[in-house]
Amino acid sequence: MEFINKNLPYILAGISLGGQYALISIGYTMVYGILRLINFAHGDIFMFAGFAMVYLAASTPLYVSIPLVIIITVILGFLIERIAYKPLRSAPRMSVMISAIGVSYLLQNLAWYFTSGLAKQYPKIPWISGSITIGSATTPIVTIITPILTVLLVIILVMLIKYTKIGMAMRAVSKDFETSQIMGININSVISFTFIIGSFLAAISSILYFTSYSTVTPVAGAMPGLRAFVAAVFGGIGSIPGAVVGGLIIGMCENITKGLGWTTFSDAFTFALLIIILVAKPTGLFGEKTTEKV
């Protein structure tokens, strides 16, 4: 009991961070499942949502700024796909990936330009910024809310994909891009929808994440983005439950390595994990195997 009381905050923080990664990583996994593209800009969309909140909360009450942040982020995700990825649909995969890196570079530089590279204080959101005491341990409310919200959103998303028409179209497109096009599925709207969902979840995640970290910088999205991508690969790219499990594992691992005083190596450790998975089991925990036809 003593042990649990002592370590409960760490475990909860790990789960909470994992939940935030999970929400980002769903965006990666869905886009990869459909376009076979690592959306390098996804982490920066997440960062953008953070800054949007900083600026909007300064001028509007929270019940306006929170929905507004979500809407703006969704629009950004939608526009990025339309402007930077859609024209390259028939181009080699490398070009699309370079375009994604370019968008990421652009978003970071824009953020730098508008903020002069300074870290901005994230606004306090009354319902989630405070602390709560469980037993003898005190923990921020956000660590309790994140896992609950994550599970809730994932359930809704899975239902959406399973039972709605657009969900069925998404599954079809991710199985076979060309055939579903021939079968009359509007590929572009499916892809846009995927980006909208991904950006929506990234916006939610950014509210939770920056509430616990309290400042936003132009490069704040880069590492969480990469970690979330690793989570997506870990869980098996294309699989939503995989992304959630992967996110939780990566979040826990990060908190453990930091807790052990290996902060310099926390990123290195994440990447080492990624490389081990890629080499040993490229399909991840829940991924499907594909073979190339000769």
């Binding site: 690592i38 990469l226 990123d267 290195a268 990447f271 490389i275």
Partner: peptide
């Protein structure tokens, strides 16, 4: 392709 990209990126970070 992209898995190679992310793995080499990872190695650079390591």
């Amino acid at each position: 392709s992209d898995y190679l990209a992310i793995a080499t990126l990872g190695f650079a970070e390591i």
